[in-house]
Each structure stands twice: as C-alpha cells, then as structure tokens.
Write a protein that binds this DNA or RNA. Structure first.
Lengths: 198, 198
DNA sequence: TAGATAATCAACACCATGTACAATAAATGG
DNA sequence: CCATTTATTGTACATGGTGTTGATTATCTA
C-alpha cells in the first residue's frame, strides 16, 4: 500500500488523487529518459494530459515533485519496517537487512531511478536517516568509545550499505537478497577480515 | 597547481583563461547561495562581468560548467597522488588516506560544496573511480574469493570513505587528518570489531 | 606590426514560466 | 438526488531566460 493510498483513506478528493497520480507517473516516465533539469513542467502536463494550472495547484516545480515522490517512498519504507524494532545489534540485523532488500526489490524501478540515475543527494541522506532511526547499525550504542568516532563509523557503514545496494540494483538484483544481506552484514561486522581471514 | 594552469602552460589564449576563470569563480560563488537549478547563465555572466556570448563559447550550460569544474578537480587529485602507487594493501594505505585528506583539506571549500551541498551523483562516482584506479582498497586483489563479492566489498568501503569524509568536512575538519585516516583504515580492515573488540 | 582570434554588442525569435480569472466539471455531504 | 463545495480547465498575458546571429572592437601571439 502506498502512502498516497493511505492518505486517500482519509478524505482526499478523487480528482486530486488522480491528478497527482498521472503527474507522478508522467514525471517518472520522463525521468527515465532524461535528467530532471531537462524536464519541463509543460511536457509533464502534456504527457499526463493535465492542465498546467493543475500542476501548480499541487507542486512548486519539478524538484518539489521529485522530493514529494522521494518522501512518499521514504514514508512507505518506514511503514514497511514498522513491525521490526531491534534495539540491539544482534543476529536479527541480518534479517532486517534482508527485509529492506526485499522491499527495494519490490520497488526496484523507482528506487534504482532515484538512487542511481536521476535522484539527488538529499534522497540518499533521507535513507541514511532511516537507517539511523532504526538503530540498525551498531555504532551508536557503544559507551566507552568516542562519540565522534561512533558517528563516523555509523556513516561509514550506512554509506557503504547504500553503495552496495546501488550496485546491486545496477546488476539487476541477480544476487539473492539473503546472500546480499549476509554480505553486507559481514562487511559491517568484520570489515575486510571476511576476505582476508587471519 | 591547478589543471587550468597546467593547460595554460601549453598555449591557451590569456583571454580564454581569464574568461573561464571569472566564469568559474562567479558560478562557485552563486553555488554557495543556491542550488544549480536556480542559477541562470545570465546571472553568472553578470557577476563575472562577461558577455553571455562568451559563456556559450566555452560551455553548453550550467551543468556542463559544473562538470568541467568537477573534472578539473578530479584531474588535480590524480596529479597530486601521482607519486604514490601502492600496489598492495599494506601499511602505506593509511598514509595514502592521510595524503588524500590533506588534499581535501587544502581545497575544503570547493570539495565540501561539490560533495555535500550542490554537487551531483556523478562526482561521487568519479571520486570512487579514483579510489578504484589507485587500488587503494584491498578487495580487488583477493584471488580465492568471489569476484562479485569483491566488487561489492570495494564499493562498500569506497562509499563508506566518502560518507566519513563528507561528515568530516561538515564538521569543519576539526579531527586531525592523521586520526581520521587511521579511523577509516580501521573501519576498512576491522569493521565494527574496532569498537566491539572480542 | 600584421594577422588571427576572442570578446563584445545589439538584436532577434522562441518558449517555458507563473499568475489571473472566469467557466466548467466533478465530488462530497446531507 | 440535490445543493454546495471544490478541483480542473481554458484562455490570456506579461515576464524573463535562452540560444543564435552577424558585425564590430579589443587583445593576443608570432
């Protein structure tokens, strides 16, 4: 269930729901062809068969539209992971990672588009904040360690995850989610030792 | 020595050199204030006190200009690191990391701008490619390991490095370069074990 | 100094933009 | 089902950046 549908459960006018939907779909279609800077509001509306005035009723510009799409996706991920709440870094972290990868796989086209091709840096930051909020990564819990180093370590792991996921998407997600999750887990816990065991 | 100056050593017309310089400086100045999408060619030229026709003689648009600036920086980093050529992952890697951090510190304003605020994803990719080309990170050398996993591991470490560096820049590079290099080195080699020694 | 080359200037058509307002269509709540 | 509210449409308009042209001027290099 998407965020749009959830909001719609309240009392959003069907017309608004439809307009936003066709606008988003058209925009995403265009985003597959060219960078956002080359996409005009006029052509989004033409493709969506919607009046330009309608666009301005809901969005400021293309970038606002992009951010709303990204924001919806972020909310959706949060809902998807709402059930899981590991408060420590134990064996369930690998499962959590797998869960995330499964979600990404289910929304691969969009995520790949936003993360690899035509997204922006703020989207990556949002994803990293999700990871931070989930306390999925261990480094925030350390007590006797340097606070600053812990933050750096977290960012190292989080950005590492994103990097692997981006390539995984580019590779068409050939590698099973479970294996990929395991690989990421090992990289976090053991670093290169996994590859050069002593 | 910048790439521009190097090119100039051949035989680039002084006028061209000057035009490109003022255009770049003006653009960077504007980039500190607002995102690239809001920057017009007209205002770049106004600030640079250069005719708009001159801009079009050298660049296609703002994005082309940005990419040339990033590309120059990348070339500059390559030159800077040209002397160092570690072909294996040994103790000199930490020194190499420190060398890179020192370079970044010397060009902090620009790097922070391109990496944190208003750059694009391709710039990060370029940086990662530099790391790959340097064979600074170990995972490509493994023989008995899965090729695919090695690539993922490399991307994990490379993106992790970028993540730490970005935050380090945001923090105003308070932490000494040597300590930061050491931290990154430990994260690569030992993962979270550094923080949770067994 | 002479020739080559770059920058300037003015002018131009073009098109996306953002806004305004009236008219129309559709949805909601009773 | 009707009356009211609300969204969308259509039109029009001023604005401003764009990209290109050709001629002129300024500057560099050899």
């Amino acid at each position: 269930m998407t965020t749009d549908q959830k909001k719609a459960e309240k009392k959003v006018d069907r017309r608004v729901k439809y307009s936003k939907m066709v606008i988003k779909n058209s925009f995403i279609k265009l985003l597959k062809e060219k960078p956002i800077a080359k996409i005009t509001i006029k052509e989004i509306c033409a493709l969506a068969d919607v009046n330009r005035t309608t666009f301005y009723a809901h969005y400021i510009d293309q970038y606002d539209l992009l951010h709303q799409i990204e924001s919806d996706l972020v909310d959706d991920v949060k809902d998807y992971l709402a059930n899981y709440n590991p408060n420590a870094f134990d064996s369930t972290t690998a499962e959590m990672l797998e869960k995330i990868l499964e979600y990404i796989k289910a929304n691969a086209v969009l995520v790949d588009l936003l993360l690899n091709a035509n997204g922006d840096i703020s989207f990556e930051q949002d994803i990293i904040m999700i990871l931070a909020r989930l306390e999925l990564l261990p480094t925030v819990i350390g007590e006797d360690m340097d606070k600053e180093d812990a933050r750096y370590a977290f960012l190292f792991f989080a950005n590492g995850c994103i990097g692997v996921i981006k390539q995984w998407l580019k590779d068409g997600m050939k590698k099973p989610t479970q294996d990929t999750a395991r690989l990421i887990y090992d990289l976090i816990t053991k670093g290169q030792e996994k590859f050069f065991p002593r």
